[in-house]
Design a binder for these strands. Structure first.
Ligand SMILES: [Mn+2]
Ligand SMILES: [Mn+2]
Ligand SMILES: [Zn+2]
Ligand SMILES: [Zn+2]
Lengths: 149, 149
DNA sequence: TCCTAAATAAGAATAATTACTATTTACCAC
DNA sequence: GTGGTAAATAGTAATTATTCTTATTTAGGA
């Protein structure tokens, strides 16, 4: 499961990215955890063996790992909070580029439930489904990232 | 759909909260939009009619509206980014209090798809399902909010 | 071994959110 | 209606997460 340094090096080099020991250490910290760590978590962990590590390197490495496709960001919405007064049961269709959010009504999605075996772990209060993609305006520019608003 | 001032006043007073004209204006701005606005969006909109409005009041009002149950925050994860190196298709079980994230494997969830009518609006690249609730440690303290880490 | 572009580290800048405090106001009791 | 009081507001400062800037170091190719 955990990639060896040489395997990871290959991934980086295929994308024209350089392979560094910091990058491997950060990868190892992320892949070795089931905690879905934050940047700060990874920084603290890796800092122990790389005392001069900077936050910037962690952010930078995570971007690269995402690009390569061996890590992902769970939190689509960490940039700013978004609110909704529509309390009807519904879900969302989200544009990854312009952050537009459209409502999505679908009974099947409303009725999803946890499998019985998983159910007793948590006291569930709800669920959400988000479909991600590119809206009609953004489809043509999928690869040109948009600046912050 | 849009609550009248008197209806909204009732909601506030049932919870022992005071009803103010700012609060109604913010509610109106939120409920009158389909854009899933950010705090900044609401601030700008309402500021036009309340030139002395402060951000604080917008945050404060949104908290109250959430408490009352007539608005919700779409973005669970806006506080800080969280990462995952597990690229196997899976979903998440999230504790609303301690922010713990557990993996959830479920074929049914993996296979969700948009209804054909919705499908052509977006170029869909994926979807996620998040179940929310309280983990076993947090169940007993559901009402005692946790301080930031 | 050398060159060069990319990565790193350190720190500054920005953006979103939260905290603090003086003033104002909603609402309750009279 | 008037007054008292706790809560809400406005204005500002502080904090936190993220992004940017720049000088220095280094990976990887020639
Ligand atoms: Mn919605
Ligand atoms: Mn996961
Ligand atoms: Zn878009
Ligand atoms: Zn918990």
């Amino acid at each position: 499961m955990l990639l060896t340094p040489e395997q990871l090096r290959r991934h980086f080099q295929e994308r024209g990215l350089k392979f560094t020991s910091q990058r491997y250490a950060i990868y190892r910290a992320l892949a070795g955890s089931t905690e879905h760590p934050s940047v700060e978590d990874l920084y603290s962990t890796v800092k122990a063996s790389y005392p001069t590590l900077s936050m910037n390197t962690v952010y930078n490495t995570l971007e690269s790992l995402k690009e390569i496709g061996i890590a992902s960001e769970i939190s689509l919405w960490h940039d700013k909070a978004r609110f909704d007064a529509n309390q009807a049961s519904h879900h969302h269709l989200v544009c990854l580029r312009c952050k537009k959010i459209e409502d999505l009504y679908d009974d099947t999605l409303d009725r999803l439930a946890l499998s019985p075996k998983a159910k007793h772990r948590y006291r569930i209060t709800g669920h959400r489904v988000e479909f991600h993609g590119y809206c009609s305006r953004c489809k043509p520019k999928m690869n040109k990232p948009q600046k912050r608003r």
